[in-house]
């Protein structure tokens, strides 16, 4: 049987660069430990408001 390395372990063996989507605190914590991190300026469509998402969908936005 072929001996395959765990891809996650493989990833962590080298320098890590992180793209973070969501809570910015995750990126800041990594930066505090010297890990390169880029925070993506993103939020859920219409802030997650289902009524607005439904209207936007009907209006083709």
């Amino acid at each position: 049987m072929e001996d395959r390395k765990d891809p996650i372990q493989d990833l962590l063996d080298g320098p890590v660069a992180v793209i973070n989507i969501g809570l910015a605190q995750f990126a800041r914590t990594l930066e505090g430990q010297g890990v390169a991190a880029v925070q993506v300026d993103w939020c859920p469509p219409a802030g997650g408001d289902r009524r607005m998402i439904d209207l936007l969908d009907k209006l083709g936005a």
Binding site: C43, P44, P45, A46, L59, A61
Partner: peptide, 10 residues
């Protein structure tokens, strides 16, 4: 300014 884009993007 498109109100749809304002609401969608937040």
């Amino acid at each position: 300014i498109d109100i749809r884009k304002v609401v969608a993007s937040g």
